[in-house]
Design a protein around this nucleic acid. Structure first.
Length: 680
RNA sequence: GGCGGCAUAGCUCAGUUGGUUAGAGCAGCGGAAUCAUAAUCCGCGUGUCGGGGGUUCGAGUCCCUCUGCCGCUACCA
């Protein structure tokens, strides 16, 4: 077979959070595929990177009071560590916030502009004046414009099902800051994807690049009508790359993220003296993307369209998998099934998860269920009981003699397993790991009865049968080694341990074709511990606690400091009678005007209802414009002794909080209260 | 509403282009063995292959239809 050049990517994890067992479905599926290809002797690169741009990163960094760069640098380290400990081996792990990516984005942009696909349009969007950012739908809640249910999401109503834009919401609130967002209009750049409709029809429906259900999905949901323009710019502030010919605007994160695959490849090429174009132009290399079903349309419509327009190679295949469920349900933080990679590693061996996922993965887009009880029984029965047990029950007998000089008669067992090689390989190639695992385990099921019938433990006792004993062990260990070769993509550590035990590293798939003879056998040590259900429980328990702790540590919008209290400690106790001496009243501001000579004061005219008017000079000039005050309700200290001021008589005061200067905040009065009412 | 998928033993599933009495693992029951991480081996399944109809000499396997579940999507086919 001729050697292929294969570039493989897994989706770029967002730098906003830690890796969890749901992510690992994809990185393990991909890692197994890559290891398989390498074992088969192909040139194969596993390329990934952190996806670092966008509003969410900005917000997270701000929350922690650090720069976006510092934030994503920290995540980058954490991600790489988690992956490495799961034996996920990338050839290059980059970042979308890299010079290579910026440069490539520019290159794409030039080509897309030249192809006449870029269009400018005005977009109205909600803007959070406090967080100083435009708000995506999911960051807005408010009252449904149709049925008036309060606290509904930004895109549709959970009560009546109405669909709307966040702009239509009544009393919208930003979930980032709690502020009331305002509508702002901005220019955005769009890619006219419709101009590529013909190409995308052909590419998605050819049958070569996508799973059939995915091709059908695209046809039914997008390609049956004109494709909508794709909004690929975001106005400042935005953490990302500024668009060179459109200052103040940035490429939307989904524009630069897939280009990150290429940027990461470019880094690898620079390190290894390889030509980037050999991998991403022409047809010398295959390109395989592994992604989850949630990002299907970015990878099957926009991305091929971008590549096509910019003159790069198109994906050979996009492999799409489903989501992870745990015990039949969505991962849940409160139940403890939202398990971080790190938490898993604190309790369990990564080999378990690698094998369990492999045994469940098929080429289909179906969701994958991690049943925790099955997880333990399956791993123990299959790997410990059947596979490793083969070595465990014979290696000790062969330590003294090593393997026989010639491979003994084994009733065709080795030849049978060798003959399965191509079919198992085809299952791996097709991402049908479920089938591959079943075939491999069936081989283990043939090997154990062999040991049973030959009874090496009986042979051991008979000095005349030492040769036979050596032969039996030679067969059993070779059958075991075949399994280790076939399982090597899934269980790299087991393959390494097997190589050490038999003094012959496992590096090629076709090592399963030839038995090992005449070599020494090392001291057997346990290769894999059994899964202890208690540890699985402990992991779930730990996840539950982590979720609870995270909740307590981050009261989201209410992360209050003690600064205010420190600055102005609590006053001495007073009696209720003391309190009632102060007559607080609701009042409406009916007039407000500047006092030109005053540095801090505004002159307010307050109505207490009816004809009652009071004039107050309030020290809020730096915080409020007179026009924003007129009409609003305030809390007024009605019986405060009048005070003659330079500009007139002040007949009371309005209450406000804050240290002063521009940081003064008038107390608001909830709806329903009317001027003249006393505050109790 | 539309599109896609699934429906096979208590549980998880396999059944390749339709072909002999429908299989495996786990769990369960009985036995053996004691080399091995209480691992292993042997034996034990009368399942309406979701219901109905059709094509065919023959269908779990193809077609139609109904029902149920899941996913995506939405008033637009």
């Amino acid at each position: 077979m001729s050697s292929r050049k294969i570039l493989v990517t897994a989706a770029l994890p967002y730098a906003n959070g830690q890796i969890h067992i749901g992510h690992l479905v994809e990185y393990l599926q991909t890692d197994i595929w890559v290891r398989f290809q390498k074992l088969r002797g192909h040139r194969c690169l596993y390329i990934c990177a952190d996806d670092t741009h966008g509003t969410a990163i900005m917000i997270s960094a701000k929350k922690e009071g650090i720069s976006e760069e510092a934030f994503i640098a920290r995540t980058h380290g954490e991600h790489q560590q988690d992956f490495a400990q799961f034996d996920i081996e990338f050839d290059n792990y980059g970042s979308t916030n890299s010079p290579e990516n910026r440069e490539l984005c520019g290159e794409f942009w030039t080509q897309i502009r030249q192809a006449g696909l870029v269009k400018e349009k005005d977009v109205e969007q909600l803007f959070d004046p406090e967080a100083n950012t435009f708000l995506a739908d999911r960051f807005v809640r408010g009252t449904c414009p149709k049925c008036a249910s309060p606290n509904q999401p930004g895109d549709n109503c959970s009560a009546c099902g109405a669909h709307y834009t966040p702009i239509e919401l009544i009393d919208p609130v930003s979930t980032l800051s709690g502020a009331t967002p305002e509508v702002r209009s901005e220019k955005h750049l769009f890619i006219e994807l419709e101009k590529l409709h013909g190409f995308l029809d052909e590419w998605t429906q050819s049958g070569a690049h996508l799973q059939p259900e995915v091709a059908n999905y695209l046809k039914g949901h997008f390609l049956h009508e004109p494709l909508r323009d794709w909004d690929i710019s975001r106005p400042a502030p935005y953490f990302g790359f500024e668009i060179p010919d459109f200052p103040g605007h940035y490429w939307y994160v989904w524009f630069d993220a897939p280009i990150g695959y290429m940027a990461s490849t470019k880094q690898w090429c620079a390190k290894h003296g390889e030509s980037f174009d050999d991998w991403w132009r022409g047809d010398t290399a295959e390109i395989h993307h592994f992604i989850g079903k949630d990002i299907t349309y970015f990878h099957t419509l926009f991305w091929p369209g971008m590549l096509k327009t910019a003159g790069f190679a198109l994906p050979t295949k996009v492999h799409i998998h489903g989501f992870l469920t745990v015990d039949g349900a969505k991962m849940s933080k409160s139940v403890g099934t939202f398990v971080a990679a790190r938490t898993y590693l604190d309790h369990l061996d990564p080999a378990y998860l690698r094998y369990y996922y492999a045994s469940k993965l098929t080429p289909r887009v179906d969701d994958l269920d991690l049943n925790l009880e099955e997880f333990a029984t399956k791993v123990n029965a299959d790997l410990v009981g059947k596979v490793v047990n083969l070595a465990s029950r014979t290696a000790r007998f062969a330590g003294a003699t090593g393997l026989s000089e010639t491979y003994p008669e084994d009733g065709g067992l080795f030849a049978h397993a060798a003959a399965q090689s191509e079919e198992i390989a085809a299952a791996y190639e097709a991402c049908d790991y479920n089938k591959a695992m079943r075939m491999i385990l069936a081989l283990a099921d043939r090997a154990n009865p062999y040991v049973e019938t030959k009874q090496p433990w009986t042979l051991k006792k008979d000095p005349d049968k030492q040769g036979e004993l050596q032969d039996v062990c030679t067969v059993a260990l070779n059958l075991f080694r075949q399994l280790a070769v076939y399982l090597a993509p899934v269980l790299p550590r087991l393959a390494r341990q097997t190589g050490e035990l038999l003094g012959d590293p496992i590096v090629r798939w076709d090592q399963a074709q030839t038995p090992l003879v005449g070599t020494p056998v090392g001291k057997f040590e346990h290769m894999l511990q059994r899964v202890e259900p208690k540890k699985v429980e402990a992991m779930i328990e730990a996840s539950k606690e982590e979720a609870a702790a995270a909740e307590a540590a981050a009261p989201s919008a209410h992360n209050d400091s003690d600064e205010a209290l420190q600055a102005e400690p609590l006053a001495d106790e007073c009696t209720f009678d003391d309190f009632t001496k102060v007559d607080l009243r609701v009042a409406r501001v009916v007039a407000a005007e500047q006092v030109p000579e005053a540095r801090k004061l505004l002159k307010l005219t307050l109505s207490l209802g009816g004809d009652e008017r009071r004039t107050v000079f309030a020290g809020i000039k730096a915080a409020y414009e007179p026009e924003q005050l007129v009409g609003r309700l305030v809390v007024f200290v009605a019986n405060l002794a009048p005070r003659q001021m330079k500009f007139g008589l002040s007949e009371g005061m309005v209450v406000a909080a804050g240290p002063g200067g521009a940081d003064v905040f008038l107390l608001n009065v909830d709806e329903g209260a009317v001027p003249g009412q006393r505050v109790h």
